[in-house]
């Protein structure tokens, strides 16, 4: 049993071990009610990480996800009174558009994705500030419940956020495993030059990957703003780091090609368990960012495929 054979299984083993440790320390953690609310709370982050998976899967990164989510919290709040439920459509289209622009700049203008998405994120941030008038906005409670109440209600004791996340996960899983797009994505992630040589339209596939990332970041922002009943240009700040951590800890390496959306589910759950464990072990909340930063470095170092990087720049 070599390390390489265990490696694909490490994420879920890690998750189980963590759950066992935290559960062993405090059995309250394992109560179904607690686990369910923990999963429901992490859903906006999960949806963002789901999108980020596609950007990382093709060997890129999407640093605009947080700004796009911020922007959609504002769009959702501003558009709700006039458009009602159609505000969701505006949000999704906006996210898709921003993602496509990132993809276009990366593939056609040959700007590395960490710069192109950083720049597009700057545009999204400006737009959010313009739309919000640089203030925190609040949704009218009746309007919110009328249009988006279904997102945050409860059925059979399970919060609806989990259904939203679940449906998106299944849709993305379908896209990844059952469509030609999914196959092509794998080809691009495994080796871009080979994919080009075998006649794939790599540009289109990469643009679509970034578009999906933008769209899901937008849905994450929408769900988050409905949850908190408001929007602001900084509401989703603090999402970017755990979203990247979730993807990498789940086992999709920075070099792309392996892993996928189910890995990201496991990665997000690991993030969620670590977060609540800090509560149970009474670790100061101010430690959190530092801990996740260190976990990020460890996760990258463990998963990255160094044979793909002849020179590490």
């Amino acid at each position: 049993m070599s390390l390489d054979r265990i490696k694909p299984h490490l994420p879920w083993i890690t998750l189980l071990v963590l759950v066992a440790i935290v559960g062993g320390a405090d059995s309250n953690f394992l109560k179904p009610h607690n686990l369910i609310s923990m999963v429901a709370d992490i859903m906006p982050l999960f949806i963002m990480a789901l999108g980020m998976t596609f950007a990382i899967y093709i060997g890129g990164i999407d640093l605009s996800a947080q700004s796009v989510a911020n922007m959609t919290t504002v769009i959702a709040t501003v558009a709700l009174p006039t458009l009602g439920i159609s505000a969701a459509v505006v949000c999704v289209v906006a996210g898709l558009a921003f993602g496509m622009v990132s993809g276009f700049i990366t593939t056609r203008l040959l700007v590395p994705s960490f710069v192109s998405t950083l720049a597009v994120g700057g545009v999204a941030y400006s737009l959010a500030q313009y739309l919000s008038g640089q203030r925190a906005l609040y949704m009218d409670a009746t309007l919110r419940d009328g249009s988006f109440g279904w997102m945050v209600g409860k059925s059979f004791g399970i919060p609806h956020e989990i259904f939203v996340g679940g449906v998106l996960l299944l849709a993305m899983l379908f896209l990844q495993t059952r469509t030609t797009f999914g196959r092509a994505l794998k080809a691009v992630g495994a080796g871009e030059l080979a994919a080009v040589a075998s006649g794939l339209n790599v540009t289109r596939i990469k643009v679509m990957a970034f578009a999906l990332s933008g769209m899901l970041a937008a849905i994450a922002g929408l769900l988050f703003s409905v949850k908190l009943s408001g929007g602001s240009p900084t509401l989703a700040n603090g999402f970017l780091l755990p979203a990247i951590v979730a993807v990498l800890v789940g086992g999709t390496p920075l070099t792309g090609g392996v892993g996928g959306v189910v890995n990201t589910l496991i990665g997000t759950l690991i993030v969620a368990v670590i977060r609540s464990s800090m509560l149970y072990f009474e670790i100061d909340a101010t430690m959190q960012q530092m801990v996740f930063g260190i976990i990020l470095i460890a996760a990258i170092a463990m998963t990255i495929d160094r044979s793909k990087l002849r020179i590490v720049k």
Partner: peptide, 26 residues
């Protein structure tokens, strides 16, 4: 971190930046 762990610098430094901000917060 970048050289010894052979992690691309944009990601190594992004992660280190998060650690730094986290440490300052701490």
């Amino acid at each position: 971190v970048h050289v010894k762990l052979r992690i691309p610098s944009f990601m190594a430094s992004l992660a280190m930046g998060f650690v730094g901000t986290g440490f300052a917060l701490l």
